[in-house]
């Protein structure tokens, strides 16, 4: 009973933390983008504009939330919930510090990959159910892009699995005590980050939403908090990918002096900022360039990475 109560408490804490971080990121992203583009950003509501998040929440919650008469009602309502739920579920396997984490799963990595595959349903459903041409195009693009990059994401993690000999994220972190996997698995890291950006369809790979050509892509017809949920899902996704990059390639909670949980949060914040910097820096490629790059460059490179890792492991005995 005590065990059950403890795990429920941890789950509540992790979910609350994830949602709080996602909400805070709305403000962080706007301020950081403003900084890099030499403007101020939101600075009026509360100290440093921190209460902007609250103002936005109240505004978006009280907006008209309509379901179009030409849409497929059930699927239309379901789609935004799926993206939030799948993103939150993946947090179950993240080891935050020794002893802190929702579950110690021996198939942790597979669980993450499964959840990120389910995320495809959200955007494909949203695009199709909206009954709008822009949405349909956005949904199709999102599905094709997420499916393709799913393949490379799975492949890029195999090197880490070979080195650690486990799918369990705790074991993977413990295996990095001497050397972080970002050194032997540098290629894997690069592929994973690129695939992560494409999976969360963040800029520069936000072609499913591409507002200059598709208005808002798959969420053109959404309004109110249903629209907001796609953004909450996106920010949770960014946090998740950053946390995974830290866990898999940058030693997780390992670090000198400071307590483990502080190291984990510090590293994760750094990678979240990197995601925002990517958005501030790069222009958007064309869709055929994106998929071509994936299948013609990322796939051969990640296969080569796998073979080289295998060969090196073999040579070292």
């Amino acid at each position: 009973m005590c065990e059950a109560a403890r795990s429920i408490l941890v789950v509540v804490g992790v979910l609350a933390g994830a949602i709080a971080i996602a909400a805070g990121l709305i403000w962080v992203e706007r301020r950081l983008l403003a900084l890099w583009q030499d403007r101020l950003g939101p600075n009026r509501v509360g100290p440093f504009g921190l209460l902007q998040v609250m103002a936005d929440m109240i505004k978006i919650m009280t907006k008209e939330d309509w379901v179009p008469p030409f849409a497929d009602r059930a699927v239309f309502v379901l789609a935004p919930a799926i993206i939030v739920v799948t993103a939150l579920l993946s947090f179950a396997i993240i080891p935050f510090a020794p002893g802190i984490g929702v579950v110690d799963l021996n198939v942790g990595l597979l669980f993450f990959l499964a959840m990120s595959s389910l995320g495809v349903y959200s955007v494909a459903f949203a695009g199709w159910a909206s009954g709008n041409k822009y949405s349909l195009l956005g949904g199709l693009r999102a599905a094709a892009q997420m499916l393709s990059y799913e393949v490379f994401m799975g492949l890029s993690l195999m090197g880490v699995v070979i080195l650690a000999g486990s799918f369990n994220l705790r074991t993977i972190v413990e295996a990095q005590e001497d050397m972080w996997f970002c050194i032997p698995q540098f290629l894997g890291l690069v592929i994973f980050v690129i695939a992560g950006v494409a999976e969360t369809h963040r800029l520069p790979f936000d072609l499913p939403e591409a507002e200059t050509e598709l208005v808002a892509g798959y969420h053109t017809e959404y309004s109110g908090m249903k629209f907001g949920m796609f953004f909450v899902g996106e920010y949770i996704g960014v946090t998740l990918i950053s946390a995974l990059v830290v866990t898999l390639f940058f030693g997780g909670w390992n670090g000198p002096v400071l307590p483990p949980i502080v190291w984990f949060l510090l590293k994760t914040s750094l990678f979240i900022c990197l995601f925002i910097l990517l958005r501030a820096t790069f222009p958007r490629p064309r869709f055929d360039q994106l998929l071509g790059f994936g299948w013609k460059v990322m796939l051969p490179v990640s296969l080569a990475n796998l073979l080289v890792t295998g060969a090196v492991t073999l040579a070292r005995g």
Binding site: L88, L89, A92, V102, L105
Partner: peptide, 8 residues
Amino acid sequence: SYFPIMVI
């Protein structure tokens, strides 16, 4: 060990 997964 899957109980927390069900909770989440």
